[in-house]
């Protein structure tokens, strides 16, 4: 039992990263119908911005975290400008291809400039260490990541459910033309959606740095697939669903590996696909109603 709970706690950080990435994913999909494959590179760019602030400029952790989020937003807006706006309204396949191209382009550029070697991402002192409760180790960084997830998740839900902008986003996701005739500036809503989704990727990037202590140019490749599956599990377009889906996937994957015989650990990535197939067969619309967010 202790082993089980300990492993769950270990999975929480990974789950929170997937939750933040999945929430951003699901927003761009739900509101503008874009499956943004470059989301992983937006995430990676955020991690690099924070890394440079922390290790090159020597700025304090809090400032570096903010700069990481801003870096992610900058790359997110760039993706919107070059890979989405010129082809807006031209169908899912085109958007799929342009965002895929943006993903490869940005990743390759980073590999060229900074190689794909891991770079250290050192944790601030206040996040180091752990509490020992009974036989359980609870890391301070895990507590911090969970607090950030809850606060950011709550803010996001409030924004989407209660504010004027959130209502405009959801109205637009249902019927863009009618939303426009209410005076809703859909161009502006698209930009806001990209900013929020990218900021969430930035938050995920900081969580990643704190959890694993290193970053690299190709770090966005795998999480983005898992995060996409997390948002499918939660019902594409449903922010709350994506957060729950991310946690299920992250914790589930960690437990899966924990109970696998050591020689089969290579099957780790199989887990998300098993979950995806179960969801697609049992409840293809996801756990929560989509299109409502």
């Amino acid at each position: 039992m202790t082993y089980f709970i300990q492993q769950m706690l270990n999975g929480v950080c990974w789950g929170s990263i997937l939750a933040m990435l999945g929430a951003g994913y699901t927003m761009t999909f739900g509101i503008i119908g874009l499956v943004n494959f470059a989301h992983g590179e937006i995430f990676m760019a955020g991690a690099f911005a924070a890394y440079f602030a922390l290790h090159v400029a020597g700025l304090p952790f809090g400032v570096a975290a903010v700069l990481g989020i801003l870096g992610a937003i900058a790359i997110g807006l760039l993706v919107e400008r070059i890979a989405f706006r010129p082809v807006r309204g031209s169908g899912m396949i085109t958007l799929f291809i342009t965002s895929f191209a943006a993903s490869i382009g940005i990743r390759t550029l980073f590999v060229m400039l900074f190689t794909d070697r891991a770079k250290p991402f050192s944790m601030p002192a206040f996040l180091k260490g752990a509490y020992l409760i009974g036989d359980l180790f609870i890391f301070k960084k895990t507590i911090a990541v969970v607090i950030v997830l809850v606060v950011v998740g709550a803010l996001l839900m409030y924004l989407v459910k209660k504010t004027k902008t959130g209502i405009a986003m959801r109205a637009m996701s249902y019927d863009s033309e009618t939303a426009q005739s209410m005076g809703i500036n859909t161009e502006k809503i698209i930009i806001i959606t990209f900013i929020i989704a990218s900021a969430l990727a930035g938050v995920a990037a900081i969580m990643w740095g704190v959890s694993y202590g290193r970053i690299r140019s190709s770090m966005g490749m795998m999480p983005v697939v898992d995060a996409f599956i997390a948002s499918v599990i939660g019902g594409l377009g449903n922010v709350f669903g994506a957060i729950v889906g991310g946690l299920i996937l992250g914790i589930g994957e960690t437990l899966f590996v924990a109970y696998l015989p050591p020689e089969l650990i290579g099957l780790r990535t199989l887990f998300v696909w098993i979950v995806l197939f179960i969801i697609i067969i049992v409840k293809p619309s996801g756990l929560f109603r989509a299109n409502v967010k």
Binding site: I167, R170, A171, S173, Y174, D175, T178, A179, N291, V292
Partner: peptide
């Protein structure tokens, strides 16, 4: 063309 995904008050 009401927004079918929103509640009445949200519409």
């Amino acid at each position: 063309n009401i927004f079918g995904n929103l509640t009445v008050i949200e519409n």
